[in-house]
Amino acid sequence: MKTGLAISIILHGALFAWALVKISSPRVFKTPEIKSVSVDFTTLDELTRLKAGRKDAKKPPKSVKKVKKSKPKPVAKAKPKPKKVKKVAVLPPKPKKAPPVPKPKKAKPKPKPKVIAKKPVAKKKALPKKKPRPKKAKKKSFDPDKISALLNKIPNAAPRAAKPAPPAPKKAVQKRDEPGRGRQDGRDTRMTVNEIDAFRAQISRCWNPPIGGLGADRLVVRMRLKLKRDGMLASPPQLMNSQSSPFFAAASDAALRAVWQCQPYEMPVNKYSVWSDMVLNFDPREMFQ
């Protein structure tokens, strides 16, 4: 009896002591340190503009590195073709190749100069020293821009708005004068979400669809719209779908009335090529929800 009591007291004491030690000093609850991540909010509008490029963007430093990165292969391939090698030679290493020009001078008395002399003769009186310079200048103005322009085209993945600009490609190339700045006439930009919403708001103000008919929520009217630069209709809108039901006749009339009534439309002037010809889908489904 006494033994059992003693054992019980000892065990309870031990348990109590363990609890005092263990529970009073709980494990420190550590939370992993969270690194803050800086986030910039960008609207769809801004994103669209960023993609399209800006006219007032600063001219970036010469993309020498880009040229270097992109060119190594052509350089290797260009070995047999002297012209291409020359283009790459615009970069620092080239000047070393330029000196060969004066060499012919020294060689003038020998028969070799005759061959070389043919070129100077053709260009008449021009000094041999000056000749290489203009060549270098041409390369400078042409190469980097063209390469960077090509590079810029690829990530833009040819935005939709670029589609209606097939005419006058030469001019377009000329206007794309700076990398990352887009075309100055804005023809390669799309209408931004805000601009589309603004247009929608103009039409919605005038669109009064007949909603009482059975199945009126499924009546979608598709219409082609051609606009002039002043936002007025260039020609009567054309319906692109049709049904024989009187509900459709009423729905299409309502859509036509809206388009006629709301003109002139306030649109971004520099994107005329984008909105000069549009297809509108008048879909009242959301109005029933």
């Binding site: 939709r160 589609k163 209606p164 005038c206 669809p209 859509a255 509108l280 879909d283 959301e286």
Partner: peptide, 18 residues
């Protein structure tokens, strides 16, 4: 792309007496 035309859905109108 050359055949593409800008396409816009008009989904909200203004219900009022004609």
């Amino acid at each position: 792309p050359s055949q593409a035309v800008t396409e816009i859905d008009i989904t909200q109108g203004s219900i009022k007496a004609i």
